[in-house]
């Protein structure tokens, strides 16, 4: 009996010694700065791709941390540091503000006017709405038009089935995802699946697998399935602008592989890195790109996807209530009908 105790006792007493517990970070400006810098240093996925010298960023911004600064000033400093990443998926969230980088669209033409899209020339007042999709017929009822403005708006097979049934006498379709800032990635896959005749590899994905800037897992194929029963096999145009971002960017990347699809408009905004979250000792949350996605050629889509036909909305057209991008899409689709 004693032997058993003699064997067990040291084992139990030594249990805590085998794994070293990391020290809990302190809630000071300095440790919050270090915690945020380290999260990006070890987990952000585009430091090498964007050729960012993150050590240099540390030197520059650490020197500006001052224990006398206000919380707002400290937040602005951290937000400015994150701005160096030039990434719309990077934000710092506090109870009083959210830092953001918006130059990926604010430095470019808007290329979208909701007033024109909802004018009588296009959707008008009597359009239908199903699962976040607004749809109707344009160009003398010859072309179906769907505006989908948010990949967070869920839709179902039934929604799409009814939409396609309503547009069944149209010879071509426009799917307008301008100003769609993204949402659920699985919805971008689902929406694209209605246009594929067979499953295809439409991209690749990998994630950070270590703390080094180039430590990534192996690339895994991203396949877009073909929907079993609901299909649109006639020509389709996808309208894009700089605010087509994130999950929308992924949808555009997939649609570029559809044989009878054309991308019309401006280059998409990008946002190819799936964002994840962490937090720093003062409770502020940071969102950052962690999982890079690629197109079917294994090229990054972080900076956006070029359309087949580049069109900007002209001021003259807008003054006349005409959407240059929709008009170009109609023209190109009619060539393919």
């Amino acid at each position: 009996m004693k032997k058993i105790f003699l064997l067990i006792l040291p084992l139990v007493l030594s249990l805590n010694a085998c794994i070293n517990e990391p020290e809990a970070p302190k809630n000071t400006y300095e440790s919050n700065f270090e915690a945020l810098w380290k999260i990006i240093d070890t987990r952000y996925c585009y430091l090498d791709y964007k050729n960012i010298n993150w050590d240099s960023v540390h030197t520059v911004y650490k020197a500006r941390v001052d224990t006398n600064m206000t919380e707002y000033q400290f937040f602005d400093l951290l937000g400015e540091m994150l701005g160096e990443l030039k990434d719309g998926h990077v934000n710092l969230y506090s109870d009083f503000n959210r830092s953001r980088y918006w130059k990926w669209f604010s430095d470019y033409p808007a290329n979208f006017s909701s007033g024109i899209v909802y004018s009588d020339r296009y959707l008008g007042d009597n359009y239908y709405v199903a699962g976040g999709m607004r749809y109707g017929k344009i160009a003398g009822d010859s072309i179906g038009y769907i505006y989908y403005g948010d990949f967070s708006d869920q839709f179902s097979d039934n929604n799409i089935s009814y939409i396609f049934k309503y547009l069944s006498d149209c010879k071509a379709l426009i799917v307008d995802v301008r100003n769609n800032g993204g949402g659920y990635l699985n919805l971008s896959e689902q929406l694209a699946s209605y246009f594929f005749e067979q499953e295809m590899i439409t991209g690749y994905i990998q994630h950070k697998a270590g703390s080094g800037h180039s430590d990534f897992s192996e690339m895994k194929e991203l396949k877009t399935p073909s929907h079993k029963t609901i299909q649109w096999r006639r020509p389709v145009a996808v309208l894009t602008n700089r605010m087509s971002y994130s999950a929308t960017n992924s949808f555009i990347s997939r649609m570029k592989m559809v044989p009878n699809a054309i991308l019309v408009g401006d280059k998409s905004g990008g946002g190819g890195g799936l964002p994840m979250s962490s937090e720093i000792p003062n409770g502020w949350m940071v969102r950052f790109s962690s999982v890079p996605m690629y197109d079917a050629n294994k090229d990054h889509i972080e900076w956006g996807i070029d359309p087949h036909i580049k069109v900007d909305m002209s001021v003259e057209d807008m003054d006349r209530g005409v959407d240059s991008i929709i008009e170009m899409a109609v023209k190109e689709l009619k060539k393919r009908i």
């Binding site: 987990r43 950070k208 697998a209 897992s217 895994k220 799936l274 994840m276 962690s290």
Partner: peptide
């Protein structure tokens, strides 16, 4: 994996 999203694990089936 710390960097792996649930999209990869449960939609993409990558549980490596």
């Amino acid at each position: 994996m710390q960097g792996a999203s649930y999209y990869e694990m449960f939609t993409g089936g990558d549980l490596s």
